[in-house]
């Protein structure tokens, strides 16, 4: 982790705002990506220039699947942002409120003092560049006392101009965060686990194997699956999650397989094994399924016991045979 990134306390809060799962804290965003292979999508833009959307910033929007995986493994918890704010600000004690207001006033005064100081320095520099010097009301007497200034080395007295004294105007701060003044939010148990689409078991299975997932719209599937951070790797799979007994057309297999092979990927279908499955799918995995060059896929990675029962998932990789 970068040295200037403060450590992230687990579990960290995920803000639930208007049906979206958001992360607002840059260290948490970096932590989730480095530690738990959660990339999400940055959606923050400039409010009055919303078409400026090439470089987006925080918040990071998580898909329900990503939020669910983090919550299921106790790395994070969901916070109902609106409720927390309503509760936090309406029930804030008088002392807390006054202390916060005073803190804000102090910060504002500090900003004002800095503004004045910088303006004075600027005036000073500008006058010096012109060979002038400012007199201030406070040191007027001092200036008149030093008679030697009338005859300096050039033999010309440097003209004295009166620079207007800058007054410190109070600055009012618009708070941009609500934590502080609020404390670290508590989980909102009423929300429960995030609602996920039926392709979620596939997501969880691939995530547990250390893969990175991105939305698969570009390839007509549920997830594009990357073997490592997507800034470093191309995706390996186009994954579609199905129910165990969900019918699919062979045309979809042919289409997905052909598209995948055309872009050097494999099409992956899979789902939760239901009923009469006495076989663990892990037994059939190729030894290369967990590449050793990816630290996220190494087995020595500390595993947290998930608190939900995870059914086995079986997946099939499809590639064009080239016949």
């Amino acid at each position: 982790m970068a040295p200037d990134m403060p450590p992230v306390q687990e579990p960290f809060p995920i803000s639930y705002v208007a049906g979206r799962y958001l992360l607002f804290d840059p260290p948490t965003v970096a932590y989730a990506r480095r530690t738990y292979n959660i990339t999400g999508v940055l959606i923050g833009t400039i409010p009055n220039l919303s078409q400026q959307n090439i470089f987006l910033g925080i918040p990071l929007e998580l898909t329900p699947e990503e939020a669910r995986v983090l919550v299921e493994q106790d790395h994070a918890y969901i916070v109902d942002d609106a409720a927390i704010h309503r509760e936090g600000f309406l029930e804030m004690s008088r002392e807390d409120r006054l202390a916060y207001l005073q803190d804000m006033d102090e910060k504002g005064a500090e900003i004002s003092r800095n503004v004045v100081r910088r303006a004075n320095e600027k005036t000073e520099r500008a006058l010096q560049a012109k060979g002038l010097r400012a007199i201030k009301r406070s040191d007027e007497s001092q200036a008149s006392d030093t008679g030697s200034l009338l005859f300096d080395e050039d033999g010309f007295p440097s003209p004295v101009v009166a620079a207007p004294e800058k007054k410190a105007e109070p600055t009012y701060i618009t708070p941009t965060t609500s934590c502080p003044p609020l404390h670290k939010p508590r989980p909102s148990p009423a929300l429960g686990l995030p609602e996920v689409p039926k392709s979620f078991p596939m997501f969880r299975y691939l995530h547990s194997k250390g893969y990175f997932m991105m939305p698969g719209l570009r390839f007509g599937c549920h997830y594009s699956v990357y073997p490592g951070d997507l800034l470093r790797y191309h995706s390996h799979f186009l994954a579609t999650g199905l129910d165990w007994d969900e019918e699919f057309d062979l045309l979809d297999i042919v289409g997905g397989g052909r598209l995948g092979t055309g872009v050097k990927k494999a099409y992956l279908i899979g789902g939760e094994v239901k009923g009469g499955a006495d076989k663990e799918p892990e037994e059939t995995l190729a030894p290369s399924a967990a590449p050793s060059w990816n630290p996220a896929l190494r087995p020595d990675k500390p595993e947290k016991k998930p608190r939900v029962k995870v059914e086995p998932v079986r997946a099939f990789s499809i590639e064009w045979a080239g016949l």
Partner: peptide, 13 residues
């Protein structure tokens, strides 16, 4: 049309 299906997550060629 011939397609290879493999049992499990197998990285592509």
């Amino acid at each position: 049309a011939y397609y290879i299906i493999q049992d499990g997550v197998v990285k592509p060629r």
